[in-house]
């Protein structure tokens, strides 16, 4: 067991964990932050995507030990404290960017990382950036619309499918 310390969604946390503990298991099992999902567990699907020191990473493919002293952001920290959705979450709801919702935490975190890098992405940039996030329900059109809307752009510009 090794003690790991990090800041998760603004709160300092400190736990003894086995070295082989994956970051996603630390978040879900030790901190009970179960919004971060495990989909494929092989770093393909992006359901486990979180931010570590501001960078999007797949938390199923990183050890908790490697996030020592890092700032970690998960889906639980995205809404305001009163529960009202942030602009990205609201856009996913408005544009029906989800059906079953399993991939949504990863999609929202990937979108947040994209918009930080590229505040007004094109449709192509959105589709390219989300290549590592799989959705098996929506067919992606509404997700792309939601990201486009979340960036403050008029979704009417995106060709109707």
């Amino acid at each position: 067991m090794t003690q790991v310390s990090m800041v998760v969604n603004g709160t300092a946390v400190n736990r003894d964990v086995a070295d082989q503990t994956l970051l996603v298991d630390f978040l879900r099992n030790d901190l009970r932050l179960t919004g971060t999902h495990v989909g494929c567990d092989t770093s393909q699907c992006g359901a486990c995507l979180v931010h570590v020191d501001g960078l999007a990473v797949k938390s199923c493919t990183m050890f908790a030990r490697e996030a020592q002293d890092a700032e970690v952001a998960t889906i639980e920290g995205q809404a305001d404290p009163d529960g009202s959705l942030n602009a990205i979450q609201q856009a996913f709801q408005t544009h029906h960017g989800l059906q079953c919702g399993f991939c949504t935490p990863g999609m929202v975190m990937a979108t947040a990382a994209l918009l930080k890098e590229t505040p007004k992405p094109t449709e192509h940039e959105i589709r390219t950036y989300l290549e590592g996030n799989f959705c098996r329900c929506t067919g992606y059109h509404n997700i792309v619309k939601a990201v486009f809307a979340a960036s403050g752009q008029d979704v009417a510009q995106i060709a109707a499918e």
Partner: peptide, 9 residues
């Protein structure tokens, strides 16, 4: 290479 999250690691 890969996708953005893979490229960050």
């Amino acid at each position: 290479i890969g996708d953005p999250a893979v490229r960050n690691r």
